[in-house]
Design a protein around this nucleic acid. Structure first.
Lengths: 166, 166
DNA sequence: CCTTCCGCTTGCAATTCGCAATCGCTCGGC
DNA sequence: GCCGAGCGATTGCGAATTGCAAGCGGAAGG
């Protein structure tokens, strides 16, 4: 999707699309943190991304088809949305999160989302993807919905953050 | 596991462990390509990794607990083995492969392994992990095995490579 | 010996990263 | 009309990382 890929291997393709120290974190904040604007992403970043790096990554992700950018005039609030490609990274995030929780030190507040997604399994991932499609692509999701996964994730995070603050 | 993590987020932990342009490819070649030695990894690399980068990544992966290095005397064949942590990346690789196949251009020969793992699902992943545990950790796997996943992957690759050569 | 292969190191140029400061723009208030 | 706040970025620049080529010391084979 960009320049000449180093090989035709699907793993390499994934690495070339978001195999650096920031791209996945930006996608994570948009996907799980509900952040849609430049300043939200920069200020709210747990890891403290620099604005030039963020600008570069957003540009690259848009170019590679993982994000779309909705203009609102220059100097105005531009909104970034996930594409279907990016939404289909939900299972990847779930597995990466499970691995991170199992094998690396993590803080309770930031861990709960990964744990929830792991317990929920592929069904919950699919529900979450449907919700993302609604939020980011404007595709109405099937009727008769159970409790919103997005809300569950947000609530779990809030609760854990409150507990760890005490 | 190395320096101070930028945050306690499990996704960030994963990114810090193998979020660069080479680490995952090295792990892939060891895991799916059966490569265990320095020169095998360098010469057989689809993407053409430089020797200094390979040396650095191997060192880092060993330090971070994803690989172990079995000495065989200086100037001799050192053997790299996956640790349990690395073996538990199988589901991550499976999901990354599925994503890459769906959303990026890939070559048939390199694609088949990802397709096979996707069709096999979590059961096949678990079998493959057991086989890796036997090969890399010396842990005998449960008796009464079905056909080896390692072999299926290798056969599928060979067949596809032969077809694409015609 | 002499060659070959082994894991790796070194030198060096080019690229990328990351921090801080700043830009041009728009909007609301007065 | 002007000012300040907020917006999405851009610029400058030193430091770190990357990637290519060449070479190293040891071991094994002839």
């Amino acid at each position: 999707m960009v320049a000449a890929p180093r090989s035709g291997c699907p793993i390499n393709a994934a690495v070339e699309a978001f195999g650096d120290r920031w791209s996945l974190l930006v996608l994570r904040d948009i996907m799980f943190g509900g952040r849609r604007h430049f300043r939200e992403l920069q200020a709210g970043s747990e890891e403290g991304i620099a604005s030039n790096i963020l600008a570069d990554r957003l540009k690259r992700l848009v170019h590679d088809g993982l994000l779309t950018r909705d203009e609102a005039g220059p100097g105005q609030k531009a909104t970034y949305s996930l594409t279907e490609q990016a939404i289909q990274l939900v299972p990847v995030f779930a597995q990466l999160g499970s691995w991170g929780v199992r094998h690396r030190p993590t803080t309770p507040a930031l861990r709960v989302r990964a744990e929830l997604l792991e317990r929920g399994g592929p069904k919950m991932w699919a529900d979450f993807m449907d919700e993302l499609r609604e939020t980011h692509l404007g595709i109405a999701r099937p009727t008769g919905r159970r409790r919103s996964v997005t809300e569950q994730l947000a609530n779990a995070y809030r609760t854990a953050a409150a507990v760890s603050a005490t």
